[in-house]
Write a protein that binds this DNA or RNA. Structure first.
Length: 911
DNA sequence: GACCTGGAAGTATTC
DNA sequence: ATGAATACTTCCAGG
């Protein structure tokens, strides 16, 4: 990423696009979130009578990812009450902010003509919005609100890096970020809107679209955007202009010096001025400030400030903020609708529900005018090093939860799962390139996301954004953005949402000395969120992240990747052969087992023996080395990785050493490898397990309840602190330590909790979202079973896309029947608690795996005290400073996902 | 002709 | 400070 600085785009079939953008991106945070939120949660009424329809998504286009809502018969509609009842979850009254303040209006809603269209279904948007808006807190000027929407298409890129509100927006919603917003818009980041790119549209209706969609538009023609893009306008021009290589993308890097005043950081300063200017140049706050002013129109700023709910956060803390802020809204959100009840698969015409206007609007969107779902990259100042906890206040933000918030994948009857994971590699494309297609599933087809347990008929909004895949907290990825796929695929009914767009390093500016963050940070995860309105008017937000996806060409070709491991635990004696399946294994590949201390230091490292003769590009046989401490009394979690040489190592994988005398519980049937592989007294099933270490980054507190929404911050911190495999094994590394624990917010003490899901459910006001109408009839026709999807641009969410899903029509087949049982089971509290929200979803193939195999399921093992017993000398090795990052960074990612909504299910597919 | 992809050359950074 | 190794971007070409 760093060097050349190009932007890569990932194609996701989603209608969304991923962009390789700065780190900042992801998170989108906050600022927008107010706006976003409205967009995000489409509160559109669901047409679908019931989810029973849920046909097996599979049946539908396999190629498209499907998000389906599976109604759970067991649960009455309206869990909301239930949820509420449970103090566990934190729900906000629809119109009231957590802090008690009325919700702010979402600019987009007002502006967008779109709303009008939906009014039937979504009246509440308007109504709520306005009502919700606290008079006191209303932004001084509505104009402000609109700004986000105004973003230029490319916005992501367009957004001036500094301004990358998008990320915030994405996070938006509540992201701590926003809270950070302090009135003085000192940091560009805080004010995405400021980006020059944003240009108001003349027509009201159009405005709406544009605002929301602007970004999208840019996506379609990223290259064209340059002129419009804020970036160009930015000071960098001088150096930017120099760059001929790239079209003047708005994204030109470092536009920080918006004012034209170049900071010392400017590329020009680099010793070897590259034509493009060194991407890496980081912008200082000062720089930002200076620049920002330029863009910041007073009005906008004021508005933003007004919106800001929490000023507690220090923007500066965010370590790497990339200048390249893509669109303000990082999470472009689209809404997917499930088809209206009664409609037949594929036959449903988008127009059915839509009024002519709506329909036209929708079409407009489809054509690309609408923001092509351009997800802006959140620039989020995500704090790498020191995550800040959210203040209660920020939490209260009415808008949707910030993208950097860790949310559970299931709560109560609901569970959002990725039924089909995306391929481990997906080369993202730069803006200078054409789309590389949507993200695909490893077995062909597209990733599938499904919401289980949703019986309501109201459409839900599905949010998608590209998240990080390192061992830190999940947050919007700074270098990649989701973008809508343009071209033929888009026409398909399935929601081809997104494509992954890689942003050039150069476009991303670093802040405060962070200069390398972007380099090799090419691993991403697709993150899906669903916001489920509760009967009480609150909204329950669930989130699920995919397995990591390597987005760079190089990493895909060279870096070893472990997709599965035949064994995930074994007695300390070791000696057993473990089969690793994945990619890029070499005879010289080494497998290193590592035990990390809570602080990340390596407590123990051991190179495992590998069977070179058995080594194949896709499989590697390794002998589990004996653990350093043969006397452990409880399971100990360690990691291992495959190394093909310097800088070529896989991500950490999880492995658990069991006490020598503990009987092994065989959970999985041995598979492929079994016969040959089995060895040792304790014969374990060898069935491959796939558990990317990071995949489970987010560990939920043992006691979910303990983590309140309000407590997000604390949770996040925990995550941040956690060692890299959080997701898979919550208990890894003495999580009990403070970092992992959720600290109840004084204010919210026990709000939360009941949710079985590992994550902390967030209940928010009902977000208002703009619903984009279904695509043209013909489009819908393509999708047989898929429900209509209306794409929305959620102005507020730059990073990701949102789609509103409508429940399947009753008539629709219920293919999923067979699946349901399974799903329901999976929803069991136990399971959920174990997995945590971000748990990765194993491919269906592996679904049957018993929980036991999951590291998480293991009893908490780690006894640090045991270390003392260890007979084996312990070598404490401090990881290289950047180790974390290196590991993380190794991945290169580019992923694209398409989202398709299937009729049966509620939500949508991604592919 | 528009898209997708895979490959690889050119350039920026880092070692 | 220089050169090699890496990693990032941009191009190209084939399907």
């Amino acid at each position: 990423m760093s060097g050349a600085g190009g932007e890569q785009e990932f194609d996701f079939d989603f209608l969304f696009e991923f962009k390789h953008s700065d780190e900042g991106g992801g998170g989108g945070s906050g600022q927008h979130y107010n706006y976003t939120s409205s967009n995000v949660n489409a509160g559109l009424p669901l047409n679908v009578a019931h989810s029973s329809l849920s046909t097996p998504c599979h049946g539908l286009q396999t190629s498209n990812p499907v998000i389906s809502v599976v109604p759970s018969t067991n649960h009455p509609a309206g869990y909301g009450g239930h949820i509420d009842g449970g103090a566990t979850e934190y729900y906000l009254p629809p119109n009231i902010r957590p802090n008690g303040a009325p919700a702010l209006e979402s600019p987009r809603i007002e502006i967008t003509s779109y709303m009008g269209l939906h009014h039937n279904n979504n009246q509440f948007f308007h109504d709520e919005v306005e009502e919700a808006i606290p008079n006191a807190k209303r932004p001084p000027s509505t104009a402000t609100l609109n700004l986000p929407n105004i973003e230029a298409y490319r916005d992501p890129s367009c957004l001036s890096p500094a301004s990358s509100l998008s990320s915030r927006s994405c996070n938006s919603e509540a992201s701590s970020y926003e809270s950070n917003y302090s009135y003085p818009y000192t940091s560009p980041q805080t004010s995405p809107w400021q980006s020059p790119c944003v240009s108001p549209k003349t027509t009201d209706t159009e405005e709406g679209y544009q605002r929301g969609m602007v970004a999208c538009t840019l996506l379609n023609s990223p290259r064209h955007s340059p002129s419009t893009s804020p970036r160009t306008s930015i000071t960098e021009e001088s150096w930017l202009g120099a760059r001929n290589s790239r079209p003047p993308s708005p994204c030109n890097k470092r536009k920080y010096s918006l004012n034209g005043r170049q900071t010392s950081y400017s590329p020009h300063h680099s010793p070897t001025p590259s034509p493009q200017g060194s991407p890496r140049v980081s912008v200082t706050d000062d720089t930002w400030l200076g620049n920002t002013n330029q863009y910041t129109s007073s009005a906008i700023v004021a508005a933003i400030n007004a919106l800001t709910t929490d000023s507690t956060l220090d923007m500066n803390d965010g370590i790497p903020i990339k200048s390249r802020k893509t669109a303000i809204d990082h999470t472009p959100s689209m809404t997917l609708k499930t088809e209206p009840a009664g409609e037949e698969h594929g036959t449903i015409s988008p127009t059915a529900d839509l009024s002519p206007e709506d329909f036209s609007s929708f079409q407009h969107i489809r054509k690309g005018n609408f923001c092509e779902q351009y997800l802006s990259v959140p620039q989020h100042p995500y704090q790498w090093a020191k995550p800040k906890s959210l203040s209660p206040t920020s939490y209260m933000s009415p808008s949707l939860p910030a993208l950097d918030w860790q949310l559970p994948s299931h709560s109560g009857p609901y569970e959002l799962r990725i039924e089909v994971q995306p391929k481990s590699h997906h080369r993202a494309h730069y803006e200078t390139e054409g789309s590389r297609g949507a993200v695909k599933a490893s077995a062909g087809g597209h990733p599938i996301v499904q919401l289980h347990g949703y019986l309501e008929s109201e459409p839900l909004t599905l949010q998608l954004f590209i998240g990080t895949a390192d061992d830190r907290l999940l947050r919007p990825h700074a270098f990649y953005q989701v973008h809508r796929i343009t071209g033929k695929t888009v026409s398909t009914t399935s929601l081809t949402l997104a494509d992954c767009l890689a942003l050039r390093n150069s476009d991303i500016e670093l802040r405060k000395g962070e200069t390398d963050i972007g380099r090799k940070n090419t691993r991403v995860r697709l993150v899906f969120r669903v916001h489920i309105p509760q009967s009480n008017g609150r909204t329950l937000s669930l989130q699920v992240a995919s397995n990591p996806i390597e987005c760079s060409q190089r990493s895909a070709q060279e870096l070893p990747l472990v997709e599965k491991q035949s064994i995930d635990s074994f007695p300390v004696i070791g000696g057993k052969k473990m089969i690793l399946t994945g990619h890029n294994f070499l005879q010289d590949s080494k497998v290193i087992f590592v035990e990390k201390a809570p602080d990340g230091h390596h407590v123990w490292e051991m190179e495992a023996k590998t069977d070179k003769e058995m080594c194949k590009p896709n499989s590697l046989v390794v002998e589990i080395p004996p653990f350093r401490n043969q006397r452990i009394t409880s399971p100990v979690q360690v990691n291992f990785y495959v190394c093909n040489g310097k800088r070529k190592r896989s991500q950490y994988q999880l492995f658990t050493y069991l006490p020598a005398n503990v009987p092994i519980i065989k959970t999985e049937p041995t598979d492929d490898y079994e016969p040959a592989q089995t060895c040792g007294p304790m014969n374990q099933g060898l069935s491959p397990l796939s558990k990317p270490y990071y995949s489970q980054q987010i560990m939920m507190p043992p006691d979910p309840g303990s983590c309140l929404v309000a407590g997000f911050a604390s949770c996040q911190q925990r995550n941040a602190v956690m060692s890299p495999s959080p997701t898979t094994s919550p208990k890894l590394h003495d999580l009990s330590s403070s970092p992992y624990k959720c600290i109840p917010n004084p204010g919210h003490g026990h709000l939360g909790l009941q949710q079985p899901a590992g994550g902390v459910p967030t209940i928010q006001e009902v977000p208002r979202s703009i619903v984009v109408h279904p695509s043209s009839p013909e489009q819908s026709s393509h999708i047989m079973l898929q429900p209509q999807v209306s794409q929305h641009l959620s102005s507020s969410c730059p990073l990701g896309y949102q789609q509103t899903l409508y429940p399947n029509s009753p008539s629709s087949p219920v293919p999923s029947v067979t699946q349901e049982p399974t799903y329901l089971q999976s929803c069991s509290p136990t399971h959920s608690s174990i997995m945590g929200q971000q748990q990765q979803q194993l491919p269906k193939v592996h679904r049957n795996e018993s929980p036991t195999n999951q590291p998480l399921s293991l009893p908490e093992l780690h006894e640090e005290s045991n270390h003392n017993l260890a007979p084996i000398p312990v070598t404490i090795k401090r990881e290289p400073e950047e180790l974390d990052q290196m590991y993380l960074d190794d991945g290169k990612s580019s992923a694209a996902v398409e989202v398709c909504v299937q009729p049966c299910c509620s939500i949508s597919e991604f592919s």
